[in-house]
Structures are given as structure tokens and as C-alpha cells.
Amino acid sequence: MTSVLLYLHGFNSSPGSAKAQQMAAWVSEHRPDIEMIIPAQPNTPAAAWAAIAHSIEAARGRYGAQLRLGAVGSSLGGFMATRVAEHHGCRAALINPAVRPHELLQDYLGPQTNPYTDERYELLPAHMDELRALAVPVTAPERLWILQQQEDEVLDYRKALDEYRFARLSLECGGNHAFVGFERYPAQIVRFLGL
């Protein structure tokens, strides 16, 4: 089997985000047998999902039945990683995951600039429809591990507790949306993903 770890960044983020790089550094040092994929997702939901799906299909093309897939997603990436877990039957670790992002991102409609890439684009009501269409019910919560910090200033952590109520949960007091101290978790995440 060939292990592939798919890391999905959040809204207005990039593969250069701190957690993505911490995860990649840990994998490179401790588990170089794992192929880590951090797709650069376009800024709009349907295009982002298409990029994620393409990355998975490319890995399937390389490894076929030998592919062992695991996903990690932060914020909006957690929403996408939930979809990956449901569509591909793999495990996923979700870090401060976005719940019902079609409601959450209503406040962000209009001109946007991705601070990592400097790309400018407009977030439109049609993109909220795309997010609604991408949502999937959680049918196998045992495949999910939620890492949540209560002082997340962007997302209400209680929504994640409700949405993923039967999943494995690590809830920490304090912290923030970036997830303070994430470097404590890569080894445990890889073990949970079964990679």
C-alpha cells in the first residue's frame, strides 16, 4: 500500500499556511514514505472541489488499488475533508472545521484578496449555492477526528460539536482559529488516519 496524506487549507489560504507547512515538515522528517499532497485550491468552492478531486484522481492513477488515503482539513478545508471522507471512505482530521459555510461566508460576500497569493476575486451569492451543493451528511463519524479550540475567533466551536457529535473530539480551552500548538498533533493525526 502507498499512503497519501491530502492536506486541505481553508478560505483565503494556501499550501503555504503554517499548519500545512508544519504537517509537511513532520511527514518529511518522520514518515518520508507518505506522499503528502497540498493542492493549491482556487478561491471559489466548485473550482476548489474540482482541484481536490483532480488531486485524488491523480493519486489513484499513480497507485490504483494500492492507494491508502487520509485527509486533513483546516476551517473550510475541514468542510472539504468531510466530503473527501464521505466520498472516498477514508479517515479525516478536521481542525476548527467550518460548519454550514454557505451561511458563515455570507458576511464575506464582495471583493476579496487572498493574503497568501494576492489574488483578487469576488465572492458571490452563487458561491454560497456551490457550498450548499458540496455539503454532505456525516454517515461514518468514526472516520473523523475533530480538533477544536474554544476561543476560535472566526467560527463558533459549538456548531462543530453539534455537527460532528459522534466523531472523535479533542476540545481545548483557549486557542484561536489558527489552532495554537498544532505542532503537537501531526504524529497522532497520521496514526489516526492509518497511514
Results as ranks from 00 to 15, higher is better:
residue 187 A to S: 11
residue 59 A to E: 01
residue 185 Y to G: 01
residue 133 A to S: 11
residue 172 E to G: 08
residue 24 A to F: 05
residue 13 S to C: 14
residue 156 D to M: 13
residue 152 D to E: 06
residue 112 Q to W: 05
residue 122 E to L: 06
residue 188 Q to V: 05
residue 30 H to N: 14
residue 81 A to F: 12
residue 22 Q to P: 03
residue 75 S to H: 04
residue 171 L to E: 09
residue 1 M to N: 02
residue 174 G to A: 09
residue 150 Q to L: 10
residue 164 Y to P: 12
residue 1 M to S: 13
residue 130 E to I: 06
residue 59 A to S: 07
residue 181 G to K: 08
residue 44 T to I: 11
residue 173 C to Y: 09
residue 111 P to F: 10
residue 130 E to K: 00
residue 62 R to T: 08
residue 26 W to A: 04
residue 57 E to G: 04
residue 44 T to M: 03
residue 49 W to Q: 02
residue 31 R to V: 13
residue 37 I to K: 02
residue 174 G to D: 11
residue 173 C to K: 10
residue 113 T to A: 09
residue 177 H to F: 11
residue 104 L to T: 12
residue 28 S to Q: 14
residue 108 Y to K: 00
residue 121 Y to L: 09
residue 101 P to E: 02
residue 163 E to F: 15
residue 155 L to M: 13
residue 30 H to A: 15
residue 68 R to N: 12
residue 67 L to H: 04
residue 158 R to C: 06
residue 186 P to E: 07
residue 34 I to C: 13
residue 21 Q to Y: 06
residue 185 Y to S: 01
residue 108 Y to T: 00
residue 135 A to S: 08
residue 186 P to G: 04
residue 145 W to Y: 04
residue 92 A to N: 01
residue 120 R to E: 14
residue 184 R to T: 09
residue 143 R to D: 02
residue 35 E to Q: 13
residue 44 T to S: 02
residue 137 P to E: 07
residue 21 Q to P: 04
residue 13 S to H: 12
residue 136 V to R: 02
residue 76 L to N: 05
residue 155 L to A: 10
residue 19 K to D: 09
residue 126 A to H: 04
residue 10 G to L: 13
residue 36 M to D: 09
residue 32 P to G: 10
residue 144 L to D: 10
residue 116 Y to G: 07
residue 35 E to Y: 04
residue 5 L to W: 00
residue 183 E to I: 14
residue 10 G to Y: 12
residue 65 A to Y: 04
residue 119 E to G: 06
residue 17 S to M: 08
residue 49 W to F: 10
residue 75 S to W: 03
residue 148 Q to L: 15
residue 97 P to S: 15
residue 97 P to C: 15
residue 21 Q to C: 10
residue 39 P to W: 02
residue 88 H to W: 14
residue 155 L to N: 10
residue 85 A to Y: 03
residue 100 R to L: 15
residue 71 A to S: 05
residue 76 L to P: 05
residue 117 T to N: 07
residue 151 E to I: 04
residue 149 Q to K: 06
residue 77 G to M: 07
residue 153 E to S: 03
residue 17 S to T: 06
residue 82 T to Q: 03
residue 103 E to F: 12
residue 140 A to I: 05
residue 25 A to P: 00
residue 34 I to T: 14
residue 185 Y to H: 08
residue 184 R to I: 05
residue 140 A to V: 09
residue 84 V to R: 01
residue 4 V to Y: 06
residue 86 E to D: 11
residue 70 G to D: 01
residue 50 A to Q: 04
residue 166 F to I: 02
residue 165 R to N: 12
residue 17 S to Q: 06
residue 162 D to A: 10
residue 67 L to F: 11
residue 173 C to F: 08
residue 119 E to F: 04
residue 48 A to T: 03
residue 39 P to A: 05
residue 179 F to I: 03
residue 118 D to R: 15
residue 144 L to A: 06
residue 61 G to C: 07
residue 124 L to E: 05
residue 32 P to Q: 07
residue 186 P to A: 07
residue 87 H to W: 02
residue 80 M to T: 00
residue 79 F to C: 03
residue 141 P to Q: 05
residue 82 T to W: 08
residue 64 G to E: 08
